[in-house]
Design a protein around this nucleic acid. Structure first.
Ligand SMILES: [Mn+2]
Ligand SMILES: [Mn+2]
Ligand SMILES: [Zn+2]
Ligand SMILES: [Zn+2]
Lengths: 136, 136
DNA sequence: AAAATTATTGCAACTGCTTGCACCAACAAC
DNA sequence: GTTGTTGGTGCAAGCAGTTGCAATAATTTT
């Protein structure tokens, strides 16, 4: 089931603005910024406002339909949950971004769950550090 | 060796503003915000500017003398490296903050280092999720 | 001690993102 | 279909943090 029907099913109103945000989100490549989504939405409906984009992303986030990740450039990036989960290693020397499978954090999740009864919410994490090439 | 002498030793100028930022940082409890540091500095030197505070914190961060952590309220928090390393579990239902010893992430660090030759920079991480009390 | 050099500061403008509020439109009740 | 309710939107102002630039002051050279 898509984002639209989930929203509707949970009693949220399915406005044209929300539909356009969801479409822009799914159409763009992963790691889209709010500004990029706003640009796309505005092309279709010039009265659209960026705060509506942020509010829609916030809602989708609360419902677990998108993840939000700070990859270290000055803006936050969004990723639809439907496209699958993974994480990233971000080199703060050269800026390189390495993909990390979801499973790389399973052990940590288990530890936190077992030892602290804490259920971590690790869906699209960015871990900063130094990549192999930049270590010498 | 304190922050002041480290700065001086690396060729950075030891200005009154920097000294006051470092003193405020060490005097306050851990998890100080830039605004709180600014308030303290301004009480001693009213001409002080908040961008100088931010620039000093940025420099100390680059040198590994402070860590910066987003604990989920709207502002970033700073912690002097001298006071020791640890991490936090942050419940985004009730806001509770649980301390996590440095060692809890050693296994992850080893995995990333071994499998990806990536040296993660995990000095004062905040992991968001749901605490034991909020899981029912 | 004075002059020269250049890192650092204060200021104002700017960025990404959030929020209060009046107006509007999606959906439900009739 | 019309009316009413209430959640959602647009707008403008606000907040945390950053940045360009001219003035200033810490340090070096003479
Ligand atoms: Mn990704
Ligand atoms: Mn801490
Ligand atoms: Zn690198
Ligand atoms: Zn909790």
């Amino acid at each position: 089931m898509g984002c639209d029907q989930t929203l509707k099913g949970l009693g949220y109103r399915l406005t044209p603005q929300r539909i356009m945000v969801v479409e822009a989100l799914h159409g763009a490549d992963e790691h889209v910024s709010a500004e990029e989504i706003y640009t796309q939405v505005k092309a279709r409906y010039p009265y659209a406002n960026i705060s509506t984009v942020y509010r829609t992303l916030e809602l989708l986030k609360e419902l677990g339909l998108v993840t939000e990740t700070d990859l270290g450039d000055g803006r936050v990036r969004y990723h639809p949950a439907e496209k699958g989960h993974h994480h990233h290693l971000v080199c703060h020397k050269c800026g390189k971004i390495i993909d990390l499978p979801e499973s790389a954090l399973f052990h940590l999740e288990e530890t936190l769950s077992r030892d602290y009864r804490f259920q971590p919410d690790l869906k699209h994490l960015a871990i900063f550090g130094v990549c192999a090439d930049c270590q010498k």
